[in-house]
Simulated assay, not measured.
Amino acid sequence: MRVILKAEVFASQHIKHLDITALIKFGLDERHLIQVEPLDADEVRDWLNKQSDDVREECELAFDSGYRLDSDEYGQFSPFTIQVACVDKAQWYQEEPLLPLDIALKFLSQPFIIFVENRRNDSAFLRATATGWRKQKLEKFLNEDWLKFEAGGGMGEVLKYVEEISEPPEKYLRHFVLFDSDALEPDKPSKQSEDVVTACGKSVYFHRLKRRAIENYLPLSTLSAWMGINVHKKVNGILRRKLVDAFAKLSSEQRHHFNMKKGFKGDLKKTKADDEKETEQEHRLVSHFYQNVSTEIRIVLAQGFGTDIAELFKEEHFLIKEKWLYDDKSLILELEPMLKRLLSLV
Rank of each mutant, 00 (worst) to 15 (best):
M227Q: 11
E215W: 14
I229A: 04
Y217S: 03
M227K: 13
L223Y: 08
V231W: 02
G237T: 01
A213K: 15
L218Y: 06
S221M: 04
R241F: 14
K234H: 09
V231P: 01
G237V: 04
N216P: 13
I229Y: 11
K234Y: 06
K233Q: 12
I238D: 05
P219E: 10
L218S: 05
V231N: 02
N230L: 07
G237S: 01
P219T: 11
G228K: 00
K233A: 10
P219A: 12
E215V: 06
R212G: 03
S224V: 01
M227F: 04
L218K: 09
T222Y: 00
K233F: 09
N230V: 06
V231E: 00
S224R: 11
L223C: 07
L220C: 09
R241V: 15
A213P: 02
L223A: 07
W226F: 14
V235A: 05
K234S: 05
R240E: 09
N230T: 09
A225H: 08
S221A: 15
I229S: 06
K233G: 01
M227R: 13
I229K: 15
K234V: 09
H232L: 03
L223M: 05
I229P: 00
I214A: 10
L223Q: 04
M227E: 09
A213Y: 14
M227C: 13
G228F: 04
G237D: 04
L223G: 02
V231C: 05
E215L: 06
P219I: 11
L223K: 00
R212P: 02
A225K: 14
I238A: 12
K234A: 03
S221E: 13
N236I: 06
A225P: 01
T222M: 12
I238Y: 13
L218T: 09
G228R: 04
A225E: 14
S221Q: 07
A213N: 15
Y217K: 04
A213F: 12
N236V: 00
I214N: 06
N236R: 13
I214E: 12
T222C: 11
N216R: 03
A213G: 07
N230S: 11
H232E: 06
R241D: 05
N216L: 07
W226V: 03
G237K: 05
I238V: 15
I214F: 08
K233L: 14
A225I: 05
Y217H: 10
G228I: 00
K234G: 03
G237E: 01
W226S: 01
T222K: 02
I214C: 06
E215N: 13
S221P: 06
I238L: 14
M227Y: 07
R212Y: 07
A225M: 10
R212E: 04
I214K: 01
L218W: 08
N236Q: 12
N236L: 05
N216T: 01
K233H: 12
L220V: 14
K233C: 03
L218E: 10
L220K: 10
N216V: 07
G228E: 09
S224K: 13
I214W: 14
W226T: 01
K234T: 13
L220Q: 08
K233D: 11
L239A: 10
W226K: 04
E215K: 05
A225T: 10
K234L: 00
I238K: 15
K234E: 14
K234Q: 15
A213H: 15
N216Y: 15
A213M: 14
P219Y: 10
M227I: 03
